[in-house]
Design a binder for these strands. Structure first.
Length: 290
DNA sequence: AGCACA
């Protein structure tokens, strides 16, 4: 990941100016009462519309670097739905948090995502071959069962707790809890477009051409071609120097192939990289042919 | 935060 050479961060233990020095003892109450999020790699997501689908949560997080798995949870409190997204480490969880917190999730209802570090990690480990997302349904706790789906049936229940003390109850009266079968990630199968050259998922417009930024000053077409050509569907790559730092465009047969490469290579370093790994997005328009 | 080629 990041490498820091020959420099030590001496500011680490420095005192925030608004707090008197004498507060900083080994047993400092400030630190003692502050949750330590350092080991947390799970995000807690609230602000979701109550008709959210696990698949939507999955689509929201799946392309974030370091994503592992996620789960949607019907809390059983009214129609409240929350989600947990687990990443390979704290860094990638934080990065996803920062990039998605506060974004409009549903323009229709105006619901805005509120994302924080979870209080504890999801202990559910993703088994190979199992789905990357799961649903936990506590809505009919009276009947006494939680449900999950997506082929994972490691009978574990979820580990996470919401961070804040969720004071907000939106308990609709006469809530008419519908069938628990909604626990299954229902593919509403009305939208199966995927390998056209452009479509949009969760508000992001996908494209079978990728835009690659954060390249080192010496990056070349050849270097990128080395890295990209093994992937299926790869067609072409062009580096543009454009005065400043180079950027590149990589074209693929279809959106799915472009997406796979984005997933695989997001954040990775090239030999020529100097200021961090590649930043890959869908291009705004498809590469012209020739 | 940075998106060209035709």
């Amino acid at each position: 990941m990041e490498k820091v050479i020959g420099s030590v961060n001496y500011h680490f233990f420095s005192t925030p100016s608004h707090v008197p020095d004498e507060c900083y003892t080994a047993y400092d109450p400030f630190f003692l009462h502050q949750p330590d999020y350092g080991g947390i790699n799970t995000l807690f997501v609230s602000g979701l519309p109550d008709d959210v689908k696990a698949r939507e949560i999955h689509n929201l997080f799946r392309r974030r670097p370091g994503f592992d798995s996620c789960q949607l949870k019907y809390t059983g409190r009214g129609n409240q739905v929350v989600a947990f997204a687990t990443f390979v480490n704290h860094q990638s969880a934080l990065a996803a948090l920062h990039s998605l917190n506060g974004v409009q999730f549903d323009p229709q209802t105006g619901s805005v995502l509120h994302i924080e570090m979870a209080r504890s990690n999801s202990r559910r480990k993703r088994k190979p071959g199992s789905g990357a997302y799961v649903v936990i349904d506590n809505r009919n706790k009276a009947v006494g069962d939680a449900q999950e789906s997506s082929g994972d049936d490691s009978g574990e229940s979820e580990a996470d707790e919401a961070p804040g003390d969720e004071g907000d109850l939106k308990i609709p009266k006469g809530e008419a809890v519908d069938n628990p079968e909604t626990a299954v990630p229902t593919e509403n199968a009305e939208k199966t477009i995927d390998d056209v050259s452009q479509d949009t998922v969760d508000g992001v417009s996908r494209c079978s051409t990728l835009f690659i930024a954060n390249l080192g000053p010496n990056c070349t077409d050849d270097e990128l071609k080395q890295v990209l050509s093994p992937y299926s569907g790869f067609k072409a790559v062009k580096v543009r120097a454009r005065g400043g730092m180079p950027v590149a465009f990589a074209d693929f047969e279809g959106i799915e192939q472009a997406t796979q490469v984005m997933d695989a290579l997001q954040g990775s370093w090239l030999g020529s990289s100097d200021r961090g790994g590649m930043h890959i997005e869908y291009a705004r328009s498809k590469m012209r042919k020739s």
